[in-house]
């Protein structure tokens, strides 16, 4: 599911089955050195979350990405988002990011950190296989949380 009108309608009707929210976290870096890196990391993350959506459409809701800069106190924002999503009725909330600073910034949240792979120059079929490989890293993390309760 995506955070769009039609899917949210389904979510409201099927809350017992759609219980997981995934929030992509993307850093916006405007410096000349960091710009390209941050853009391609965002590209990678968007492709990856869309792929996760395809595989787990009936259980996860992919939220619009949370974008921030390094000068923001990002932890406060994310805690507000976390509370809001719990209020909405999600039992599991995951954050996916390529920004390594999150692993230490918010240890109590389920942050899935994946090193970014530049997809920009890749062929469609290569992209597909790279993303499938990455998905294989994500699935165990999701299913271990799901089977906790």
């Amino acid at each position: 599911m995506f955070w769009i009108g039609k899917d949210v309608e389904v979510f409201s009707a099927q809350k017992e089955f759609i219980d997981t929210a995934i929030v992509p976290l993307t850093v916006i870096d405007g410096s000349p050195i960091g710009m390209k890196q941050s853009a391609s990391a965002a590209e990678f993350l968007m492709s990856l979350t869309a792929f996760v959506e395809q595989q787990f459409k009936g259980r996860v809701m992919i939220m619009p990405p949370f974008s921030y800069t390094n000068s923001m106190v990002k932890k406060d924002y994310i805690q507000a988002i976390d509370e809001e999503l719990k209020l909405a009725g999600f039992k599991y909330i995951f954050y996916m990011t390529s920004d390594h600073s999150w692993t230490s910034a918010a240890p109590e949240l389920s942050v899935l950190w994946l090193p970014s792979i530049p997809l920009g120059d890749m062929d469609q079929s290569v992209k597909q296989s790279v993303l499938s490989d990455q998905i294989r890293q994500v699935v165990p993390m999701l299913s271990s949380k799901w089977s906790e309760l």
Binding site: F17, Q54, R59
Partner: peptide
């Protein structure tokens, strides 16, 4: 596509 809620 799963006929339940559309997973793969």
């Amino acid at each position: 596509v799963c006929k339940h809620l559309g997973c793969t």
